[in-house]
Design a protein around this nucleic acid. Structure first.
Lengths: 275, 275
DNA sequence: GTTGACCCTCCGGTGGCCGGAGGGTGCAAG
DNA sequence: CTTGCACCCTCCGGCCACCGGAGGGTCAAC
C-alpha cells in the first residue's frame, strides 16, 4: 500500500471500469466523474485507482436507466442512508414502469388486428352544476400523480360533507394536443355548498355530450377515446371544449383496476343527424 | 355507415388517439403514419377515422419502448401472424431487459458503500497455444448474442473431437475503450488438430498474466475487472494487449449463472515488484 | 373586418452518449 | 535523431423521439 494514489490513463481506466473513453469524457465534461489529475500542458487525464468503485457504481446505476442527474445525487450523497434512499426511490419508479409495461402488454394482443374498438354510445344533456374542484395546467407526464393528489383531497371532502356524487375531470383540448394543458378535477356539490379552503368552488357549464362507458383500467382508456371520438366524428359534430371523464368506479371505490368504470363525455354540437 | 371516410383535423385526431400534435407531425415526417389527405394549398392535414386503430397500436407499442423502426415493421406487416411475431420478439427482448435489471439491482446494494471489491490475484505465464476460434470486430451491444452463437459452435466441436479444454475469449483494448473492437473466442486444441470449416485455427501468443477468478454471473464481471485491474495498476505494470476471459464454468456447463466461474487474465509486463 | 382558435413550417434543444476529423503526445525501435 | 505507432486531446455533428417556441398562414364566427 505504498502507492495508494496510483494513477492510470483514461484508456486504462476504461478497461478497469468498462466505461468507454467517450463516456468518461462526457462524465468529465458534466463534472460527474472528473479525473484526479489533468496534465495542464497536454490535457491528458489521469484517474486514480480509488475512483474505480465510484465509476462502477455509476455504471450500475446507468444500467438501471437512472438519469445522470439522479446518479449525481446518489454519488454526491453525504452518507450511505441518503444514498440508499435515492436508489430505493429509483427502484420504486422502475417498478411502476414495469407495471405499466405489463398492462400495456396485456392490452396489446387485441389491438393487433387493427379492428376498431366498438362500444355503445348514448347522448346526454348535462346541465350546469357547481363543484368542489381544482383547475390547473398539468403536464401529461404528471397527470397520474396530480390526480392521485387532487382526488384524495376531494375524497376527503366527500366524506366530510357526505357527498355521494361521482367525481370527474375535464381535460382541455390543449392537454392532449400539446404536452400540457388545463385540467379541472371536480366533485359535484349542491349550489349552496359552503366554500372550503383546500379546494375551489367551480361552476361547470352545461353541455351536450356523447357518452360511453369504459370498463377497466385507465391504461386502456385511450381505446374508449378512440371509439367514442370516432363515433362522434362520424355521426355527430364535434364541439370544442374539454372532454369530461366521470369516475363512476375509480381508485376511491375499488383497488382492482379491472373493475373501474369511467364515463367518457365528448362534447357535441347537436344530436346525431344520421345513424 | 354512409361516411366511412369521415376525416378530422390533426387536433381532433390528436384527441382521438392521445398522440400529441407534435408527435403526429413527426410520424408524418418519417412517413410512419401519414394523414389520409393534405390540403395542397394550406398544408392542413386530414386524418381518417379508419386511421385511429393504427394510431392507437403505434401508441401502445411506443409505450412498450419499441423503437419506431420496429413499430414500422409491425404496422407494415403483411398479415397478423407476422405482426404477432414481431411483437412477441420485442416482448422477449423486454423480458431479457427485465432480468438484466433485476440482476443489476441485486448487485447494487453491496456497491453502495463505494468500498473497493477485493479478490485474490495470482500470476501465471501462459505459453502460446493453438485453438479453434473466431476473430471478429464486435460491437459491445452485440457481444452476448455473438458469444452465444460462437460458443455454441465451439461447444459442438468440443463434443465432436472430444476436446475438454476450457474455452475463452480475448478482448482487445479497443473493445472497451470504444464501443466496438476485435474479440477472439477460442477453444484450445492440440497443435496437430485438423482444421474445421466452421471456425478458424488461431494461434494465441504466450504471455504473462495476472489472474483472478470471478464466481457468479457475467453481469458482475465488471467488479472483478475493477478489482484485478486496480491490483495490476498498483503492483505490477500493465502490458498492452487483449484481456482474456476463461470460461471455467459457463453457460455450456451450467444453467445457473450464479455458479459460473470465469478466470480473468490481465496481461502484465513482469511479476510484481512490491506487495 | 376582426377576433381567436387552429394550423403550418422551421429551428433549436433535450439526454447520453457515438463517430470521426484534425491534430498533439509519449515512448520505443531503427 | 527520426520514424512510427499507440494513445491522447478537442470540436463538431449525429442519433432517437420527440418538445418548445417563433413567425406566420387559415378558417369560421361575430
Amino acid at each position: 500500500m505504498w502507492d495508494m494514489t496510483a494513477s492510470v490513463t483514461i484508456g486504462e481506466f476504461s478497461r478497469l471500469t468498462h466505461l468507454s473513453v467517450k463516456t468518461l469524457h462526457h462524465y468529465h465534461d458534466i463534472d460527474l466523474l472528473a479525473p484526479a489529475l489533468v496534465d495542464p500542458s497536454s490535457g491528458y487525464r489521469r484517474y486514480e485507482i480509488a475512483q474505480v468503485p465510484t465509476a462502477q457504481l455509476i455504471r450500475r446505476l446507468r444500467e438501471l436507466q437512472m438519469p445522470l442527474a439522479q446518479v449525481r445525487a446518489v454519488i454526491d450523497a453525504p452518507d450511505i442512508a441518503t444514498r440508499d434512499e435515492a436508489v430505493r426511490l429509483h427502484l420504486v419508479q422502475m417498478e411502476r414502469e414495469l407495471v405499466r409495461t405489463q398492462q400495456a402488454v396485456a392490452s396489446l394482443r387485441s389491438m393487433l388486428t387493427l379492428a376498431p374498438t366498438e362500444l355503445p354510445v348514448e347522448y346526454r344533456f348535462v346541465p350546469a352544476f357547481r363543484a368542489y374542484g381544482v383547475r390547473e395546467r398539468v403536464h401529461r407526464d404528471d397527470i397520474s400523480a396530480w390526480c392521485e393528489n387532487v382526488f384524495t383531497r376531494l375524497g376527503a371532502l366527500a366524506g366530510r360533507y357526505g357527498i355521494s356524487a361521482v367525481p370527474g375531470a375535464a381535460y382541455s383540448d390543449e392537454f392532449f394536443a400539446d404536452e400540457a394543458g388545463e385540467v379541472t378535477a371536480f366533485l359535484p356539490v349542491a349550489p349552496d355548498q359552503p366554500a372550503d379552503e383546500s379546494v375551489d368552488l367551480i361552476d361547470l357549464p352545461a353541455g351536450l355530450f356523447a357518452v360511453a362507458l369504459h370498463r377497466g383500467s385507465f391504461e386502456e382508456l385511450d381505446r374508449a377515446y378512440g371509439a367514442l371520438g370516432s363515433h362522434v366524428a362520424e355521426f355527430c359534430e364535434i364541439a370544442p371544449g374539454p372532454v369530461r371523464e366521470l369516475y363512476v368506479v375509480g381508485p376511491g371505490d375499488s383497488t382492482d383496476s379491472s373493475t373501474f368504470q369511467t364515463e367518457l363525455c365528448w362534447p357535441i354540437q347537436q344530436l346525431p343527424t344520421r345513424g
